[in-house]
């Protein structure tokens, strides 16, 4: 049933485990290590076929300098300007919808809840053409606002599911006690429920942040060019007409990956809490 902890296995198994683990780890990390190594290579290495050998020179500083003097800072800024409002908007909305659906018993509650969930089952790719037409009609095409609004709308479904279930698990007597005291409903939300939701809010923020930061699909559908596009879509701008700039794309990818990675390490506790929240009663 349960795997025996490795400490309790035979010495041979332990040694095999200890020797295989670094190997598996290396294999697992190889693509990432390659990207890191590529980001320090000169362009010429890719033309001479020197992909895996010793770099002919170390151009890490030059490559990263080029990344930061190109359009990348602008794309990064766009990413923040898109991701942060989306996180705030989604969390704010889903706290309220979660509260309404979790606390009040009214006709159609389940129906509305199902509609939020059903939205998650729609493969978002099929929305591409209607959403693009919609943003054009609303004059939101190729604007950050258009992308933010769409992300909020689409993420709120999942977040509502998450929040509603979390609120359901809060001790209901707390709310009843407040009602007995004659506290207004919005005050109950702000002063009783919201403070209790902090772990859920933290966990969801981290999740939504990484979702939105890593979004590539909508970034290329709804936005064009360095004025609006986030960094995921912007990395390819290092490619020139005929040549792929592997060294710059590698350096750019690493820079682009830093914020979510930093976010993960800073908020690791919440991230894991978010994934397992509600997994065990």
């Amino acid at each position: 049933m349960f795997p025996t902890p490795i400490q309790k296995r035979s010495p041979a198994a332990q040694i095999a485990y200890q020797s295989m683990l670094p190997l598996a780890l290396l294999l697992w990390l190889l693509p990432l290590l390659a990207v890191m190594a590529f980001s320090a290579r000169p362009d010429a290495d890719f033309t001479t076929g020197n992909y895996w050998g010793w770099p002919s020179s170390f151009e890490g500083v030059a490559n990263y300098t080029l990344v930061f003097t190109s359009e990348m800072p602008r794309y990064l800024l766009n990413s923040f300007l898109i991701t942060i409002p989306t996180v705030i908007g989604t969390i704010a909305l889903s706290c309220m919808t979660g509260f309404a659906l979790g606390i009040y018993r009214f006709r159609g509650n389940i129906l509305i809840f199902f509609m939020f969930i059903a939205g998650n089952f729609v493969p978002f790719q099929i929305l591409m053409v209607p959403v693009r037409d919609l943003t054009i009609d609303l004059n939101l095409y190729d604007t950050r606002a258009g992308l933010i609004l769409f992300h909020i709308a689409f993420q709120t479904g999942f977040c509502t599911l998450f929040m509603r279930n979390f609120i359901r698990q809060l001790p209901f007597p707390l709310i009843e006690a407040a009602r007995v005291e004659g506290v207004a409903e919005w005050r109950i939300f702000v002063y009783v429920v919201l403070p209790l939701m902090k772990p859920a809010i933290a966990a969801l923020s981290v999740l939504v942040f990484t979702f939105i930061w890593n979004d590539y699909f909508w970034a290329i559908v709804l936005t064009q060019g360095p004025d609006t596009q986030p960094v995921t879509a912007g990395i390819t701008s290092f490619n020139s007409q005929f040549r792929a700039a592997y060294h710059l794309m590698s350096a750019g990818s690493i820079v682009a990956a830093l914020p979510p990675v930093a976010m993960f390490f800073l908020m690791q506790r919440h991230f894991i809490a978010g994934l397992t929240l509600g997994a065990v009663k």
């Binding site: 693009r132 054009i136 095409y141 290329i220 064009q224 060019g225 879509a233 390819t236």
Partner: peptide, 20 residues
């Protein structure tokens, strides 16, 4: 002047010509 990534432009041009 707006400069767009050459590869991206190959798919964006339809959008741009009709929408904007």
């Amino acid at each position: 002047l707006q400069v767009i990534d050459r590869e991206a432009w190959k798919t964006q041009i339809r959008n741009t010509l009709s929408a904007n």
